[in-house]
Simulated scan of single mutants.
Amino acid sequence: MAVRFLNGEVSELCLGKPELTRVAANATISDALAALKTSRDSHVSIWACGGGGPNGCCICVGKFCAADLILFLCREENLTHPFKAFDAPVSDVLPKGLPVVRHLDPSSSLLEAIDYILDGAQNLLIPIQNHHIQRKNFLHRQASSACTRYNGQEYCWLTQEDVVRFFLNSVGAFSPIPTFTIESLDIINRDIMTVPYDKPVSSALSYLHRALIEQTSVAVVDEHNKLIGEISPSTLACCDETAAAAIMALTAMDLMTYIDSSGPPEDLVQLVKMKLEEKKLGGLAELMDDFCESSMSSSCSSDDEYGFSKSGWPSSRSGGSSRSYPGRRSEAIVCSQGSSLVAVMIQALAHRVSCVWVMEEDRTVVGNVTFAGMLRVFRSFAAS
């Protein structure tokens, strides 16, 4: 039964998916940010056409979110003049190496989708054929309105979370494996990234870049390696661009406070500005000032009719820079080595996190479990 399930068509997962927002690869980061702030999703898809695709077609070459922008602003070449970074092409933020977005045929099996994910894919772009829509009436009418059309095709965007949720809904087909502990299944990743709570976040920038690619998080720990919280790409994706200034100025503990606050405390804002001036990063301090000014009032005279501030990037009028997301928090979701696979899956999906931390009873962190690790268990059925 499990093998037949794994051989099912991946297009079955596309029902009801939200419409993608598209941005051209040669668009500026400012343009991509404006599109992001009017999108219903935390990411927008990046497309290359003509020379970027086979036979002149358009292909999706990546995705863009606020975390990409924040870490891009933290690059050494952008620290002194962050305003110029918004004029760079959005393709500059794409990670090098294997693409994190992969095109997949709708008739491909769920097994093939898992293989793409285990190979590093974060999102799967799947074309939906018209005859599929005609065949399933009401459900496919929903899918038709929820997919985006490009190259004469409709596309559905699947995440690792979507695939894991699909498995959870059919977990009985794999019984009794889901009831086994994560330790016995050997899916605890012990090659984790940590930063001491009292150390500058800027010292862990390479970890944050890696976490963004690997869909994991950076643990914030004390001197005894006990877990205090986390800094995750999904959390940064819920922040505005001023988080770049906070990353370059604050310790890990202070950054968690900055993130968790609906609006960072004034004393913390002033601390960020003071630290930036000490590091001769006045451009980031000016970025904070400009953002705060444009966010105070949607009728600010320095904003034009398209929602751009006087410095040329989107203000709160272009979609609400201070959007609130459930994922904006630094609290870590935890489990023990004796937790069952299905329990950890439920935790991850309920809290919308791609990484669950594994702890000892004294809160010492020993590893984590990711969506990819969960899917590896189900993939093993095909090999057994």
Results as ranks from 00 to 15, higher is better:
residue 97 G to H: 09
residue 229 G to I: 05
residue 68 D to E: 05
residue 319 G to S: 09
residue 362 D to N: 15
residue 298 S to W: 06
residue 311 S to H: 11
residue 132 H to I: 13
residue 105 D to I: 10
residue 373 G to H: 02
residue 294 S to C: 12
residue 9 E to H: 03
residue 124 L to V: 05
residue 157 W to T: 05
residue 150 Y to G: 10
residue 221 V to E: 10
residue 260 D to H: 09
residue 186 D to V: 03
residue 357 W to N: 02
residue 247 I to C: 07
residue 219 A to G: 09
residue 5 F to G: 00
residue 209 H to D: 13
residue 366 V to W: 11
residue 121 A to K: 05
residue 127 P to E: 02
residue 59 I to P: 12
residue 45 S to L: 15
residue 170 S to T: 10
residue 272 V to W: 03
residue 303 D to Y: 02
residue 371 F to P: 06
residue 59 I to F: 10
residue 146 A to T: 15
residue 234 S to L: 14
residue 193 M to Q: 14
residue 178 P to E: 01
residue 69 L to W: 02
residue 105 D to G: 11
residue 289 D to F: 04
residue 248 M to H: 04
residue 5 F to C: 00
residue 316 S to A: 09
residue 9 E to G: 03
residue 192 I to K: 14
residue 87 D to L: 15
residue 284 L to N: 10
residue 245 A to F: 03
residue 25 A to L: 03
residue 246 A to S: 06
residue 6 L to P: 01
residue 160 Q to N: 10
residue 169 N to A: 14
residue 314 P to G: 03
residue 51 G to W: 12
residue 367 G to M: 01
residue 232 S to P: 11
residue 202 S to G: 09
residue 292 C to P: 00
residue 244 A to H: 05
residue 40 R to K: 12
residue 35 A to Q: 11
residue 334 V to Y: 08
residue 162 D to M: 02
residue 108 S to V: 12
residue 84 K to C: 07
residue 224 H to G: 06
residue 172 G to T: 04
residue 297 S to F: 01
residue 178 P to C: 01
residue 224 H to R: 14
residue 95 P to A: 01
residue 140 H to Y: 14
residue 272 V to L: 01
residue 222 D to C: 12
residue 89 P to R: 01
residue 15 L to Q: 12
residue 248 M to P: 10
residue 23 V to P: 06
residue 124 L to N: 10
residue 349 L to E: 11
residue 244 A to Q: 09
residue 259 I to C: 04
residue 4 R to T: 08
residue 357 W to T: 00
residue 38 T to G: 02
residue 350 A to K: 12
residue 106 P to H: 08
residue 54 P to Y: 02
residue 372 A to T: 01
residue 1 M to F: 11
residue 195 V to P: 05
residue 199 K to C: 10
residue 361 E to Q: 15
residue 2 A to Q: 03
residue 239 C to S: 07
residue 120 G to I: 04
residue 245 A to M: 03
residue 129 Q to N: 04
residue 343 A to I: 01
residue 378 F to C: 07
residue 205 L to Q: 01
residue 338 G to I: 00
residue 217 S to M: 00
residue 336 S to Q: 12
residue 51 G to S: 13
residue 9 E to A: 07
residue 266 E to R: 06
residue 42 S to G: 05
residue 370 T to V: 00
residue 112 E to T: 09
residue 292 C to A: 00
residue 138 F to L: 07
residue 311 S to F: 14
residue 268 L to H: 00
residue 14 C to T: 15
residue 325 Y to K: 06
residue 74 C to Q: 06
residue 257 T to M: 08
residue 343 A to W: 08
residue 5 F to T: 01
residue 134 Q to K: 04
residue 162 D to C: 07
residue 376 R to C: 10
residue 257 T to E: 10
residue 124 L to T: 05
residue 218 V to F: 14
residue 224 H to S: 10
residue 100 V to Y: 13
residue 208 L to K: 14
residue 244 A to E: 05
residue 245 A to H: 08
residue 252 A to N: 04
residue 252 A to R: 02
residue 128 I to S: 03
residue 2 A to T: 02
residue 195 V to G: 01
residue 381 F to I: 03
residue 221 V to P: 15
residue 213 I to V: 08
residue 189 N to M: 08
residue 42 S to Q: 10
residue 287 L to W: 05
residue 299 S to Y: 13
residue 228 I to H: 11
residue 3 V to M: 05
residue 87 D to S: 11
residue 121 A to F: 08
residue 187 I to R: 00
residue 200 P to L: 02
residue 154 E to Q: 09
residue 102 R to L: 11
residue 255 L to T: 02
residue 208 L to Y: 15
residue 90 V to T: 09
residue 96 K to C: 08
residue 169 N to K: 15
residue 29 I to V: 04
residue 44 V to I: 09
